[in-house]
Simulated scan of single mutants.
Amino acid sequence: MKIIISPAKNMKPAQSETIPRSLPAYLSHTQEIIEVLRTYSPMDLEILMRINPSLALDAADRIQTMKFDQNGTAAIETYDGIQYKYMKPLTFSDSDKEYAQKTIRILSGAYGILKPYDSIYEYRLEMLTKLNVAGTKNLYEYWSDLLYQDLTASDDRIVNLASEEYAKCIRKYVKAPVRFLTCSFKVRKNGVYKTLATAAKMARGQMVHYIITNRISDFEKLKEFDTDGYFYEPSLSSDSEFVFLQR
């Protein structure tokens, strides 16, 4: 079983002394992307990435200083978004880290696909960025089905805990016998259960933590997830989507 998650826009150097265990699988692709980005000025990046001048300057600096070696920081401890905070990777034991390395895959516009303890450097590049690389019109086209082929090379079960921006990189290629299962989380608001972006990110992080620390390898076991008052609701679920409601 493989878990797919999104990267985070915010990044920071890892706060622990965890040493990266591996290099990203598609570094040559990353280098090709970065070489294209290095031709962009901060003003160009501001337009391309639809960000403010300050963020564009930061993005340009990261692009120009990007490295591709083992001396970066562990991916799962470098991303600094809500999902990662609730995933709590800094609390993982050594055996948790081993299971995470086998199970979690982080999808990335720059790196394609990452194991949690791959060595990475800070960058800013969303998958939906319309960057032309090697004759392709955007990053979805550039990565094509490569990420799906990587995920399914040794496993035919994927748990989707990524945002739609990244999940569709995989979903569009799924075919039998691969099973692609999305976990959705809804909270009650004004008497109605809804999917709220922040709450969903928190719950997706908690689900990753649950899977890793409990060594979950069976889809059915996911139904036992009960962190923060969530419970599996069979009437809203299907073979392709498990829905969890919060009490």
Rank of each mutant, 00 (worst) to 15 (best):
Q246S: 06
I3A: 04
E126M: 08
D44L: 12
T30F: 13
A14H: 04
T195P: 11
I211R: 00
A110G: 08
T198F: 11
L128I: 09
Y99E: 04
P234V: 12
K175S: 12
M202F: 02
D80F: 10
N190D: 15
V187E: 11
G112W: 00
D94M: 10
L114H: 01
F92W: 04
D96E: 07
A56S: 14
E126G: 14
P234E: 14
S119L: 08
L107W: 00
D145V: 04
L45I: 12
K88V: 06
F219N: 04
R188P: 03
M43Q: 15
M1N: 10
M87K: 00
N190Q: 13
D118S: 14
E141D: 15
M202T: 07
Y232R: 05
Y111F: 10
Q101E: 15
L90E: 15
N132T: 09
S184A: 15
C169F: 01
E32K: 13
L236D: 06
D69Q: 12
Y26V: 02
Y40D: 10
G205T: 06
K12V: 13
R38P: 01
N132E: 14
K85R: 14
A153T: 09
I47F: 11
L151P: 02
N132A: 15
K130C: 10
M207K: 02
A200L: 01
F180E: 08
N190W: 10
K201A: 02
L181S: 06
A25Y: 05
A200F: 00
A60H: 10
E233F: 10
L236R: 05
T195Q: 15
H29C: 09
P234C: 08
E122Q: 12
A162G: 06
A74V: 09
S144C: 12
T213Q: 11
I170V: 14
T227P: 01
I33H: 02
T30Y: 06
S235M: 13
L37S: 01
T227H: 01
F225N: 01
Y173S: 11
F225T: 00
Q246I: 04
T182Y: 01
D80G: 08
E233A: 12
